[in-house]
């Protein structure tokens, strides 16, 4: 059942598609790469692709949760739950609205609230905008590029400021302790999502 799991990395899958072997070499195309993996999980239930996603994201989810005050055991459990959800819900991932890391982050966050805090997480009213059958290629590419730029911008923030942002996400700051102006360059991503919302509302009319 878990044929590809512990197998050494191979360059070709049975289907003949070329498989990138070393994740370290693809830094610049990270976003495109994770996207291609999740598409293979979604369309082909590709365990090898899932294994690559798992090896990359699961240790980060675990790290994130432990930074947020979770025990080793719980963080491990949650990381597995989150990745299982990634497999089960891959069909709901919409590359025109989120990067893979963003999507996984939101799943982990929701799980964290459910488990660590034993609370309900009120969900905003759902919009009927599951992934469209043919996500707009241009939108998708633009958004993934924004994602790369945002990561770079966060990395370039003065250390103190960057730490404050991280602390906010790890739950070390309450909302009243978060700076009113975070200085994060979010304008482009926000406008892009805003436009997508407008388009959706228009289609619904």
């Amino acid at each position: 059942m878990v044929d590809a799991v512990d197998a050494p990395r191979v360059l070709k899958r049975s289907s003949g598609k070329v498989q990138v072997a070393q994740t370290t070499k693809i830094r610049d195309q990270d976003e495109q790469y994770w996207l291609s993996l999740i598409v293979r999980v979604r369309d082909d239930q590709d365990k090898k692709a899932f294994g690559d996603l798992f090896r990359h994201f699961a240790p980060r989810i675990k790290g994130f949760l432990m930074k947020s005050g979770s025990s080793d055991t719980l963080a491990e459990e949650v990381a597995q739950d989150v990745m299982a959800t990634v497999w089960q819900k891959a069909g709901l991932f919409d590359p025109a609205r989120a990067s893979v890391a963003t999507w996984i982050f939101t799943i982990a966050r929701n799980r964290k609230i459910d488990i660590l805090r034993k609370q309900r997480r009120p969900e905003p009213e759902d919009l009927p905008w599951g992934p469209s059958a043919e996500p707009d290629q241009e939108d998708t590419i633009a958004l993934q590029q924004d994602t790369v730029r945002l990561r770079a911008a966060i990395a370039e923030l003065p250390e103190k400021q960057r730490d404050l942002v991280k602390q906010a996400y790890f739950g070390e700051l309450s909302h009243s302790e978060i700076a009113t102006e975070t200085g994060l360059p979010l304008g482009t991503i926000k406008s892009r999502i805003r436009l997508a919302l407008e388009r959706l509302r228009h289609e619904l009319k």
Partner: peptide, 30 residues
Amino acid sequence: ALVAAHEFVGGAILEDCEEIALSDDALEAC
């Protein structure tokens, strides 16, 4: 839209988060 943009920040922080190794059989368990 502003919430969505901040979720991208969350994604970026997750991406750059310190990795903590899972147990050897974690993928199988998953």
